[in-house]
Nucleic acid binder design. Sequence first.
DNA 1: CTGAAAGCGCTTACAG
DNA 2: CTGAAAGCGCTTACAG
Lengths: 354, 354
Amino acid sequence: MQALTSGEGPWDADSDAPALVGRATIDDVAREAGVSTATVSRALRQHPYVAESTRQRVMTAVERLKYVANSNAARLASGQSRTVGFIAPMLTSWYTSELMVGVEEVLTHERFDLLIGTANSASRERIFRGDARFQQHIDGVILVDVFCGDDGARRLAALDTPIVVLGEQLQRITSVSVDNERGARLAAKHLIQLGHKRIALVGGHNDLDVAKNVPTERAKGFRDTLQAAGLRLPAAYVQDGDFTIPGGHRAMRALLGLPKPPSAVFFMSDEMAFGALEAVRDAGLRVGHDVSIVGFDDHPVAGPIGLTTVRQPVREMGRLGARLMLDTLDGFGTVRHHPMELTLVERISSGRPA
Amino acid sequence: MQALTSGEGPWDADSDAPALVGRATIDDVAREAGVSTATVSRALRQHPYVAESTRQRVMTAVERLKYVANSNAARLASGQSRTVGFIAPMLTSWYTSELMVGVEEVLTHERFDLLIGTANSASRERIFRGDARFQQHIDGVILVDVFCGDDGARRLAALDTPIVVLGEQLQRITSVSVDNERGARLAAKHLIQLGHKRIALVGGHNDLDVAKNVPTERAKGFRDTLQAAGLRLPAAYVQDGDFTIPGGHRAMRALLGLPKPPSAVFFMSDEMAFGALEAVRDAGLRVGHDVSIVGFDDHPVAGPIGLTTVRQPVREMGRLGARLMLDTLDGFGTVRHHPMELTLVERISSGRPA
DNA sequence: CTGAAAGCGCTTACAG
DNA sequence: CTGAAAGCGCTTACAG
């Protein structure tokens, strides 16, 4: 970018800056400061052995020339990509993008790049054994909703790539996790305490063969709680909502079409619960009265529309995950599990059965 | 990343690949194919003057070695950053992130990187005259909700950096735009036709001194339509909702607290309308009956909750904007304006006045 | 159509 | 604490 042509105000050119053809390089700075490029490089990266006076001179030259290091050259020379991969089964869900924002926030601050990837069943193999984008030039990978059992986890841990898992806990892999079973228990208990007997469950990813852990754990917590209360969960009361808004809509319609529809439904994500709203309305019923609904996430729209939900601090999980990755890359890499708190937020979408 | 340790299934090592210490470089490929590195480079980038048989041999070697070019080296050598900047006043709104997803989609496909930036009043100057991240190593900039009048537009156009503007139309700058005035007119007309006389307006960015164009244009279309219908718009009926959910909540609460509250409100974004929902509920009123609400965007949750809104194809706008940027960078850079269609989607949040 | 070689702008042992 | 120099892995005129 060059200086602007003329005129006043915020779009003005900065007339203080020395005229340059193209951008200043490290050589320009070295010349200006009267030192070698090596010294400039060291001064700029907080290298310990640089005289304070030298550092000052370098900084002055940097300011004057508005020098910014060419990161391509820096990465090539140092062999460090300063890039972290981010892999999730579904990039468009609120949950995923919120995690991504958190991750991006701290990574950008540390001048790292983020490489985004989806992980459906077709691509998951490629990713770990040679996907074009991930095969090289990546320092580590942040995984969301990992799609593997204990066995897969063991193999993941054996990779020589730093890995951080978000949203669940895996053996021998650093993670920022949430107790999914407990979250589902909170939701189930809440509905049981309200007096509901016919409670349905809407999850997803049943046929994707990816991202199985999260729905599996939530389903378990839910079933266990119902069972402990002596309640049945008929097969027809378990629907696949695909973790999307339209999926939630379909699932709810199916449930309401049953001979004996449930009086309450737990959705494993708020977005699915949002989709359900329309189905309830179309059936001429009222949420919170005729049908109670509980979601999972605490999406920003959950509050405004009064959705009872299991809240998880998603953005915070993303931030923490990124920090753990950075720690690992810095060599402070003991495997750690960071549990995040889950809380039930009661709002008006759940009430006593009619 | 290295091969996995052992075991079967999707986490297996690929035993066909030649053992390599580190990654294959262009030299490895050249050796394997029996050609020079220059030829490998040409073959890989669809250079016209490469014999078909040579290209085949190179490709085979690439496959065998699972070669992937080091983009840092490629960018350094070619002098092309293959990076596009994306600047918006508010990164967390649905509108902005949806645009970003669209942009990211086509940019990634073309192996371009995206550099994200916010543009509040404090930083907008820096961006164009020397922000560390944008000063260099960027091929072009995509601007959302540009914050300048005709004068600013003229200066923007004079920059030697390719620019594409999203969401509105500016003199002499390529854009993917929407007729904001018309959108607001659609909303106003709809409410007027339903019989409303007391109609309020909730916009935002009033004190940010950024992103003024969009709210200004929408306000104009709205005012003009009311005036043409002989309706007044008292100052108290114009509120700042900050383009956020909490902002919409506050604005609605203020409106409902008025001695003579409006019977209908037009929000310049769906998210603000979402925030209003809670305020309406808290006041013991019903949306679509006691108060009609119209939004702008057609956010994914608008359908499920039945929000009447002015729909704009946001993701599509992002995609198109990215393509226009790529065209510009390829030298096909005539200034063009691509208008996108706006349509009113009538749902249950708007009805006849009580 | 292909190769030898310079060069992109940094970083980093290696000396001093 | 600092400098000279090699090298990171590509691309691209320049010859042929």
